[in-house]
Design a protein around this nucleic acid. Structure first.
Length: 205
DNA sequence: AAACGAGGTTCCT
DNA sequence: AGGAACCTCGTTT
């Protein structure tokens, strides 16, 4: 166990409404190489940003990827390449409630946080944890995150780690931009990043 | 506006 | 070990 589970999310007067998450980390020591022994249920669900692929383990939400409605296999292939030895079972009944909660702000509740499990290297997990603290509707930069994890020169390494975030949207990698303010890159397409930021801006209190 | 090198980490060979 | 790739950055053409 890398660290204690703790609550992330902001609420109250003057703060933005946000998706509440409890997370735990699964570092490489805990899953055998390639994700062997990891049982993953998945399902495809419509979302405001296109068809979403949701992946869940016993310990919580482990992955969220996007795909265009007619090409489901690329998102699944992307996810399967991350943990090639895990077993994958389509179980839409199990992932549907997750999809509903994640994309409907009316269902975001501090007293019922979403369980999330971060599966990655220690460095990646550190970066993703920092990402979880970026509030809804706010932006940060790659170098900010580097500074927060005490490696001010590691902006590029942060970019690499952010890019490997398996749970996009829930771990808000779309809120990270270049220092100049440019929407640098996005694994699932800059257009989608822009759509997410616009969607959030429209929901800011 | 585009090209360049340094930068930290990971994943190949 | 060595090299390339990556959702970067600051400086230089």
């Amino acid at each position: 166990m890398l660290d204690a589970t703790f609550e992330v999310g902001l609420s109250g007067p003057g703060r933005l409404h946000d998706l509440f998450v409890t997370h735990e980390a699964m570092s490489p020591g805990e899953w055998k190489s390639g994700g062997e022994g990891l049982a993953i249920s998945y399902g495809f669900h419509p979302s405001p940003f296109g068809m979403a692929l949701i992946m869940a383990t016993e310990r919580g939400l482990a992955g969220l990827a996007f795909d265009d409605a007619d090409a489901r296999k690329s998102a699944l292939a992307d996810m399967q390449s991350r943990w090639p030895k895990a077993t994958y079972v389509e179980d839409t009944a199990r992932t549907a409630p997750l999809a509903r909660r994640i994309f409907d702000p009316k269902l975001w509740r501090a007293d019922q946080p979403l369980r999330v499990v971060l599966i990655g290297t220690d460095w990646e997990v550190r970066v993703w944890e920092t990402l979880l603290k970026v509030p809804m509707g706010r932006l940060t930069t790659y170098s900010d995150i580097a500074a927060k994890v005490c490696m001010p020169a590691a902006a590029r390494a942060v970019g690499a780690a952010v890019g490997k975030n398996p749970i996009c949207f829930v771990v808000p990698c779309h809120r990270v931009v270049g220092k100049s303010g440019a929407l640098t890159g996005y694994h699932w397409g800059i257009t989608r990043k822009q759509a997410m930021l616009g969607w959030e801006a429209g929901r800011a209190i």
